Each structure stands twice: as structure tokens, then as C-alpha cells.
Amino acid sequence: MNKKSATIYDISKKLNVSVATVSRALNDHPRISQATKDLVKKTAKEMNYKQNNLAKALKSGETKNVGIIVPFVNTNFFSSVIRGIEEELSPFGYHVIICQSHEDVNIEKRHLNTLLNAQV
């Protein structure tokens, strides 16, 4: 059975500290003591906290997602390019989203709009 993921509000309430303190501790802010960071991170792990990537992306303006639109993925050239992009970006926490256009300009436009709307 899956435990429900905790929020920073739940951690804040349990530790009797502000939500801002929890957020700063989880993000290694220099104004937060190492002891507080360790306690918050330990409690977050115990409470099954998972960072909300959507909220983080909205705040930072960065999704760490990269979109690739290719005609077909099953050609040696494009599969090699995709692999190279993934290998280079993955160590930096980026995710690659691959779309196929099937050499159709309308499909390509749809994919492009979808990626842009997702802030890719």
C-alpha cells in the first residue's frame, strides 16, 4: 500500500517551524543551520515527501525538460542524435521528450505547440 506523500505544510506542522523554513532547508539555503536542514530532510524522508516538480518549475521558470521533434525515431541517424542528447543532458537533471512528426507539418506544429505549452 502506498503512503500518501507529505507536503511542506505537513512537515512544517510536525516540526513546528514555518513553511518557509522547511522550503529553505530542503533547498539547502545558506540561512538555515545544518542541524535544521538535517532534521527537515530526515522528517521529509520519514513522511514520504516528494518535491512537486510542477511547483518548482513555476517558481524557477525552468522545467528541465527538453523537447525533440524528429520525423522518425527508428532511423540510425535520429536514434543516435537522441541518445547523444540524453547522455549529455541526463547528468544535469534534464529529461528528454521525444515526438515524431512522420514528416507531416501539421503533426509537427501540434507537437511544437504541446511542447511550448508545457514550458519545454
Rank of each mutant, 00 (worst) to 15 (best):
I8R: 12
D10V: 03
G93Y: 10
K50A: 12
N52I: 05
S90D: 15
F92G: 11
A6D: 01
N2H: 15
G93S: 02
I98H: 15
I97W: 09
V19P: 01
E46P: 06
A44N: 01
V73S: 04
M47G: 03
S33M: 02
N27D: 06
T36A: 12
R83S: 12
I82Q: 01
L89K: 11
Y94M: 07
F77W: 06
L54C: 08
H102P: 02
H111Y: 11
Q100L: 10
N106S: 14
V66R: 01
A20F: 03
R31W: 10
S5K: 10
R83I: 01
E86H: 06
K13E: 14
V22K: 07
S33T: 09
V81M: 14
H111F: 15
Q100G: 12
Y49L: 08
T75V: 15
K64P: 11
K37D: 04
E103M: 06
N27W: 01
K50I: 13
E62G: 05
K50Y: 05
L89N: 11
L58W: 00
I11S: 00
D104S: 05
V22D: 08
S18Q: 08
K56P: 00
V19L: 06
A44V: 04
G67F: 00
S12E: 02
L116V: 07
N2L: 11
K42N: 11
F77M: 12
S79H: 03
S23L: 06
H111A: 14
A6S: 09
L115Y: 05
S101R: 06
N117V: 08
L15Q: 10
I97T: 10
V81W: 02
A25G: 13
F92V: 10
I82Y: 13
K56Q: 06
K45G: 07
S60E: 06
I32A: 05
S23T: 07
L112D: 05
N52C: 09
N117C: 01
V70I: 12
K109E: 15
T43F: 04
Y49D: 08
L58R: 01
L58Q: 07
I82F: 13
A44G: 04
I69A: 07
V96E: 07
A118C: 11
K45R: 12
K4N: 15
Q34F: 08
V66P: 08
I82V: 13
N48Q: 02
Q100Y: 09
A35I: 11
S33C: 04
K37R: 12
K41T: 02
P71S: 13
I68E: 10
V105I: 12
S90F: 15
R83Y: 12
N52R: 05
I32S: 04
Y9P: 08
N106M: 09
S60Q: 01
G67P: 01
S80C: 07
N27C: 07
Y94G: 09
N74Y: 14
K109I: 10
H102F: 07
K37P: 08
G84A: 10
I8H: 05
K4H: 14
D10I: 05
D28C: 05
V105H: 14
E88T: 13
L39S: 14
H95F: 07
L115N: 04
G61Q: 00
V22G: 10
L112E: 10
I97H: 15
V120Y: 12
I85R: 00
K59M: 12
N16G: 02
D10L: 03
I85M: 09
N2E: 13
S60Y: 04
V70L: 05
